[in-house]
Design a protein around this nucleic acid. Structure first.
Lengths: 148, 148
DNA sequence: CTTGCTTCTACAGTCGCTGTAGAAATTAGA
DNA sequence: TCTAATTTCTACAGCGACTGTAGAAGCAAG
């Protein structure tokens, strides 16, 4: 007995919002589901599992594009997994870069906050350091940061 | 002798792209500049400094909204800097949360990659773990992640 | 039978830009 | 001085990954 789900139940079960499910369908991440006579979508267990997969991958920060690739792979279990490996490695590198950038920001923010003695803005490190550093620090740094 | 800049020179000097400068003007982050007869924008040193300020703050991950507040503060050096402190602290907390999330992702990605023996997708950890974990791990985790 | 929830479609809005088109102004080179 | 290349102008569309809106229709419970 195949369990069936309305879009709301699929959303509840998978943790992907109703509107987001429809969005995934519209961009081709989810296949078009069967409809009941009135036009409402009906999902099976496989679709709900797929939604869980998508959600987990999104939580991991994979783009919709990358997830499309992962789904393709998953649908052809015979192909070799070099592509999946590449996707994951690429994503790991990006994640590590991002962590590194955020760490720089973290320490700069901490420095700014420490420097704020609670007086007037005119002498506030938080404001003035943004101005001062905008002249010297920016260059090499923002190059790195611009890569997102 | 006040130096004057075309939008292109202001862009070059501040590191903010021409189109982005116009965008900042359109959203009210930059004041409307003086124009020459033909309608082209002319900037003074103060505007270029402000662009540098904005860029640095954006590099630090402050939203345009937060930067608007910071500019207001900076223009009233007499007010006390509790607001700047609050903005910076709030932003620090967000940054630290984000680092923590990314670290979780990093370790999961590393685990996935380690588990990939280079065989076929059917037995590839990278793909299967996305499916398996989508059922159990998701809940408490994505709550945290959804906060961005 | 009514009330209130869910679902439907289609489209606009979010954020922080980036890119496009087509016109006018300016600059650099021959 | 003429021409060609570059810069600037405005106005608007597009990006990613959704979220929210409006208005209509379906459906379940009291």
């Amino acid at each position: 007995m195949q369990k069936e789900f309305t879009i709301g139940q699929a959303a509840e079960t998978s943790g992907v919002k109703v509107t987001t499910i429809r969005y995934y369908e519209s961009v081709g991440l989810m296949p078009e589901p069967r409809r009941v006579e009135s036009g409402r979508r009906v999902y099976g267990q496989a679709s709900v599992d797929l939604l869980g997969f998508i959600r987990h991958a999104r939580d991991l920060g994979f783009t919709v594009e990358a997830i499309r690739d992962l789904i393709d792979l998953q649908e052809n279990p015979g192909t070799d997994c070099a592509k999946a490996d590449e996707l994951a490695r690429h994503h790991l590198v990006e994640t590590q870069k991002r962590i590194e950038q955020l760490r720089v920001l973290e320490s700069e923010l901490m420095r700014m906050i420490d420097g704020c003695a609670g007086g007037k803005v005119g002498s506030c490190e938080i404001v003035t350091s943004l101005f001062d550093h905008s002249k010297c620090l920016s260059d090499h740094k923002s190059k790195a940061l611009k890569e997102q």
